[in-house]
Write a protein that binds this DNA or RNA. Structure first.
Lengths: 148, 148
DNA sequence: TTGATATTGAAAACCTTTTTCAATTATAGC
DNA sequence: GCTATAATTGAAAAAGGTTTTCAATATCAA
């Protein structure tokens, strides 16, 4: 949308990032990166493993875990807490963004522009807490699932 | 020890609720209810099990799981997602409330009065989602941990 | 091309949660 | 207060999901 056409896609960006950080770019990692970078929804390790084997036969589940760990460490991927399933992984947010998740198909979209400063101040005053960060996720039906 | 409290405390309320729903009030359940109802922080099954055995020797971990399941079903307890640990249990909110969690000691407090309607409408317009619910948690330092 | 070493997958180990099952216990009805 | 009966219990086993171990393999710098 706001991305120039010649901009490198996430797939290339992530592989470059791995490489630049001294990690090796291997066939299993390419398969995993391709799947997670292009997924519209957060995926669990097992889903990634299943999809990944369609692309790279010998892929091991262990490698999925290890690769996700590295992608998360590099800030490329982030763990998402669904009501069911707390080890789901999604491309990371761009700065300060939050998620809207479709309760039907799982589709995830980031949005920005939350302004909860007034709220955090009020809570800080009332509870005595010093607020450092917040988690915000919206749930609902995406435009596709809404029309069914 | 049992709570000699004349006001309707959570402990009594929860046991009554179990009883009224046709569930039996047993020694293991009393131990579990006492711990969870009085805890200032969300607890995991293993923590509850450990603390519970101090009160009821023969307590089994399985019973902790089963009792939490019933307390949740009755709306007395709710599951809390911490960054680490997604199976933590805490006394349920009173209506529409959200949590502030202390990142140091885990202390949990509910607050109300969030107004994110404007936000959900904006997000709905931008993304095409039909927003049904939201999930909001604040993190920070409680007044005790702040002064250290 | 080669060599050092990061990475791999299989298997085993772990840890948490669920199921199974015989024994126990709370409670309603007498 | 008893008794019958059905819910509840804890131990053990099973089931998941995640992590560790380790020898074999593949990447990448030189």
């Amino acid at each position: 949308m706001t991305k120039p056409d010649n901009a490198p896609n996430l797939y290339d960006q992530w592989l470059d990032s791995l490489s630049e950080s001294g990690y090796r770019v291997t066939a299993p990692r390419r398969a995993i990166v391709e799947i997670v970078a292009n997924s519209p929804r957060a995926l669990g390790p097992l889903e990634i493993y299943d999809q990944g084997r369609a692309e790279y036969r010998g892929l091991g589940l262990v490698t999925v875990y290890r690769t996700l760990e590295k992608l998360e460490e590099l800030g490329l991927v982030q763990r998402v807490h669904h009501p069911q399933g707390c080890h789901m992984y999604l491309r990371a947010a761009d700065g300060h963004e939050h998620l809207v998740l479709c309760t039907s198909c799982g589709k995830a979209e980031y949005f920005s522009g939350d302004n909860i400063d007034k709220l955090t101040h009020a809570v800080a005053r009332k509870t005595g807490f010093e607020i450092r960060e917040h988690w915000l996720q919206l749930f609902g039906l995406c435009s596709d699932c809404k029309n069914k």
